[in-house]
């Protein structure tokens, strides 16, 4: 008999997902600060550990290698860490194992942005995102919509259109407090 208890809601990592450029890292850092918790950005962590940028890793080691590494990092956090605010790379949720593990052990928040809003930021983003290189706007929109289906698996969707990172972070913090209180009053 080994009844594994679910991780208490208050202790669960908060995982931010969403399309690249939606603001997961910026917002995640703010949320972490406001909740006095630690922030982990999976992509930055990998870049630091391999001493290479993500485009470089893609180029030198290939996407498969990156996806495998990404999975190891995320599963490790799901199983061994608590109270973290985690920003996932935009493509990581494509992997079913990552998805299931996050949904089972963490609170997954989808930062949602409309395509119109995203388009306005596109120029700033493309250079650092290998997946966007050599894609037309139409292709990018297609990718945007494909990913949206994947991000549909979450605990909550947070609308970010026309909001500043600070505003979104405040919204998330307040919402989490309401949720924690309802799910696990202390």
């Amino acid at each position: 008999m080994n009844a594994k208890r679910a991780i208490p809601v208050r202790e669960r990592n908060i995982v931010l997902i969403g399309f690249m450029g939606v603001g997961k890292t910026t917002i995640g850092q703010l949320v972490a600060k406001k909740l006095y918790r630690d922030f982990i950005d999976i992509d930055q962590q990998i870049e630091k550990d391999f001493n290479m940028s993500i485009p470089e890793i893609f180029e030198k080691k290939g996407e498969d290698f990156f996806r495998k590494t990404e999975k190891e990092y995320i599963l490790d956090i799901c199983h061994h860490k608590r109270f973290k605010i985690v920003s996932l790379g935009g493509g990581s949720f494509k992997q079913e194992e990552i998805r299931n593990c996050c949904l089972e052990n963490c609170l997954v928040l989808h930062l949602d942005l409309s395509w119109e809003n995203w388009k306005q930021r596109a120029d700033l983003l493309i250079e650092s995102r290998p997946v966007l290189h050599n894609r037309s706007m139409d292709e990018m929109e297609q990718l945007f919509n494909e990913r949206k289906v994947i991000y549909d698996k979450h605990n909550s969707k947070v609308a970010t259109d026309n909001l500043s990172p600070e505003e979104v972070a405040d919204y998330i913090v307040e919402t989490l407090k309401i949720g924690w209180d309802l799910y696990q009053p202390m």
């Binding site: 609170l107 605990n155 909550s156 309401i178 309802l182």
Partner: peptide, 13 residues
């Protein structure tokens, strides 16, 4: 579907 959806609770309130 996961049963914890804090945004939903907040929207209702």
């Amino acid at each position: 579907v996961n049963r914890f959806d804090p945004v939903r609770e907040r929207t209702m309130l």
